[in-house]
Design a protein around this nucleic acid. Structure first.
Lengths: 334, 334
DNA sequence: CCGGATCGAGTAACCGGTTTCTAGCAGTCC
DNA sequence: GGACTGCTAGAAACCGGTTACTCGATCCGG
């Protein structure tokens, strides 16, 4: 019969029920200016009687602000993005903002329209897009502002990056101190910028100091990839393996275990990321801890300062923290 | 100078630039009805010249539909919710819907307002709220409709649940077949419904068949909790431990390893959930695989059918799949 | 006791779209 | 040639709020 009872009440109904104007209802709902106590009470009574709650969509339109931000990531199964998501969600939530999330499933070609679509529903964007060509990103960035980039740098756009080179440097220094002089790199996806960063750092280190020999093995980013190259690692004659990330390191660990190669007895292994399970493998994995959650929180702070009109306060690099665990040890000769 | 160049153009500007009415611009942008080709072309040219894209907020208000749904979870670090999130995000994304996510961080008292807040910004809600009292949930549900519940049942509300009892039954049957007659349960958080489900199933099984003796140990949901009770497990005289979930099982595994208790030689251990790393522990963990991603996808299908006006097609139970791995074995006597 | 400042609440414009209704025009049929 | 039909595109109402502006009433000092 009375469908209106089911459909959520609007401001007009409340105004009529309370015998006031819509403006007054709005003022009461927002605690604005001064409304006579008696009127305010009537409005609140009517609102609660009608189960009224202001439409956020209408507010957003009128205010020109949605109190929502978007996170765009290539892949939600990646622990990196999961933690950035959490940090971002929590930090933004504490400041009364909601989080819209969009996943491109690694379809780079969709990322641009996905990002623009998302941007039109909210006030700002945090974009993690490791694969998007720089030229596309440059064209896209101004349309997405306010924008914070994760692990990408672009002039004039605030970004938060992990200093992979520094992390690699720490890992290598650690391995060198243990006597390793022949190190194999289990490379990540060739198209990935972060793989590029790691590789460049390794090449530079091996050439500058001439303290160790670098071997490269094409691998990937998954457990299975690391598992598959275990034989090659064992045959390479290297005494230490630097894996693209923890997952690959786990795979290698498992593969070497099956081959009867002892870690760290015969080969030392390092991961990268310090994902939650790195502490729980046998042996526990030496890794470089990326402050992922912090990254998410800082992304929100960056975005908030832009939303507040304070021009983007620049970029930041996060140096991973070296975590020495059981998977690395002294060489036999060392 | 010309701030309008920076601020995104609106429909009025485009209409003026193209020399048509706003209605016509709207029709062209939506590919609606028939507009003279020559006009349509002019509109599109003006739109692209001005970098115009319709405001989604305004469209949402006019259409009464946001093409956005919300997922509300207690804790994003829980792999269960991460995978539901992924499945939901992907399925909804394929149908052109965006996903808003809200995390309560286990603050049950905030969950209600969080859910209502989120609901007001979108068209429907997927709610995972294991701790919210049933009375509160009953009051909340009608205000959230269209609604899909995860792992909670409520008359009249579509819900998708994991059949924990069936999973436990399979695990116990497996252990019994291996000769175990004294089984310790590492209990999860007392307030958790899913812990209740597991415990009830265990109690029923132990009393019905009288085939085994059940011991309970208060534990928790985290690695550390499992680790902490390892001593108690070893001292209990049980030959098998059923852990609340995989994390707890990992903890127990690790703790027992440190105590020199062999798994499965002296004690068999089962987990629950089959989180990604269950395959990679030593020994690999026998577990019950919950189809989390599918759950997310099905949640979207449920929600979509409600949004399309087809009344909620009821609920579904997902039976976990038993995965026998190395952490369970025959008893010494068996 | 009067004029101006203060305050509270209503009117109406606005946010940026969509859509109903209608006017105008061309084409068709008798 | 006039009436009827069919389309296209514009005018205007609407979605549900917020807020600048306005107006009347009260309060105050002179």
């Amino acid at each position: 019969m009375d469908q209106n009872a089911r459909v959520s009440a609007n401001i007009k109904l409340v105004a009529e029920a309370a015998g006031v104007s819509r403006a007054t209802v709005s003022r009461v709902m927002n605690g604005r200016s001064t409304v006579a106590p008696e009127l305010a009470e009537r409005v609140l009574a009517a609102a609660s009687a009608l189960d009224y709650a202001p439409s956020q969509v209408a507010r957003s339109l009128a205010l020109g602000r949605t109190s929502t931000i978007a996170l765009i990531v290539p892949d939600l199964s990646n622990p990196m993005f999961q933690d950035v998501l959490r940090g971002l969600s929590q930090a933004a939530g504490e400041d009364g903002h909601r989080l819209l999330i969009a996943e491109s499933n690694e379809h780079v070609e969709d990322e641009e329209v996905l990002a623009l679509e998302a941007r039109r529903r909210c006030d700002g964007v945090v974009l993690a897009s490791p694969r998007l060509p720089t030229a596309d990103l440059e064209r896209l960035a101004p349309q997405l502002a306010p924008l914070v980039l994760i692990n990408r740098k672009l002039p004039g756009v605030p970004s938060l990056s992990v200093d992979y080179a520094a992390g690699i440097q720490d890992l290598v220094a650690h391995l060198l101190s243990l006597g390793h002089r022949r190190i194999v790199y289990l490379a990540g996806p060739p198209a990935s910028t972060s793989n590029r960063d790691r590789l460049d750092a390794l090449l530079r280190l091996s050439q500058e100091g001439r303290e160790f020999e670098l071997i490269q093995v094409a691998c990937g980013a998954m457990f299975e990839n690391g598992h598959a190259v275990a034989g090659g690692v064992a045959a390479s004659g290297a005494t230490a393996a630097v894996a693209y990330n923890d997952m690959v390191a786990f795979g290698a660990l498992s593969g070497l275990h099956e081959l009867g190669v002892s870690v760290p007895g015969q080969i030392s292994i390092t991961g990268f990321d310090d994902i939650p399970f790195a502490r729980f493998t046998t042996p526990p994995l030496t890794s470089a801890a990326v402050p992922r959650n912090t990254l998410g929180r800082r992304a929100w702070e960056q975005l908030r300062s832009q939303l507040d009109g304070h021009d983007g306060g620049g970029s930041a690099d996060f140096r991973p923290r070296l975590l020495v665990r059981g998977s690395t040890g002294r060489t036999a000769e060392g």
